[in-house]
């Protein structure tokens, strides 16, 4: 389903030699998640009189996760590796560039931090700008202008139109 030239790897059968370290880390991560869940499950108090207590389903889920994680680890150790998903807008042969998603994430968290002190419009405009920039738009004034307009229109439609409360921040009293 990902790359037409490489058939998907069935579980337990390594198609290519060599161990993929990132895949191994992910598989071990799943095992770790299962283990943490199991520990957490044993700390849930019982509560009221009930036939099936609050621990039963968490127990099933954590043991299941542990089991599946182990299977995945075995798969990876035998040479299995994941093929990154192919999206319409992605280039399967390009070297992944982690700086762009990091930039988006940074912009998003910065925007979220500014949302309450400076207001919704500034916060979301920051987010808009960083995503646009990360996607290769370099005309900064244009991008900033569009960002502010989109944020402002969204703000007005939601607060005026639907009566939602979004933080006004700097615009307090202006709009």
């Amino acid at each position: 389903m990902s790359d037409p030239t490489l058939p998907p790897i069935p579980p337990g059968a390594g198609a290519r030699p060599g161990l993929s370290v990132p895949d191994l880390l992910v598989a071990l991560g799943v095992v770790l998640l299962g283990a943490l869940l199991l520990i957490g499950t044993l700390q849930i108090p019982f509560g009221i009189n009930a036939v099936v207590g609050p621990r039963v389903f968490p127990l099933i889920v954590s043991v299941g996760t542990l089991l599946l994680g182990t299977l995945l680890t075995v798969n990876v150790l035998r040479g299995g590796r994941a093929e990154p998903a192919a999206e319409e807008d992605t280039d399967p042969d390009a070297r992944p560039d982690l700086r762009q998603p990091a930039l988006i994430l940074g912009g998003f968290l910065l925007g979220a931090a500014l949302l309450q002190p400076l207001g919704f419009v500034i916060g979301t405009a920051v987010m808009y700008f960083t995503v646009g920039f990360a996607f290769g738009e370099r005309r900064a004034p244009l991008l900033a202008g569009v960002a502010l307009i989109v944020a402002l229109v969204t703000y007005v439609v939601f607060t005026r139109g639907l009566g939602l409360t979004l933080p006004a921040g700097l615009l307090n009293g202006v709009l």
């Binding site: 007005v156 439609v157 005026r160 139109g161 009566g163």
Partner: peptide
Amino acid sequence: NVKTAALALSALL
């Protein structure tokens, strides 16, 4: 469309 509905609503509100 967005505008008209927003207007209708704010009139309501």
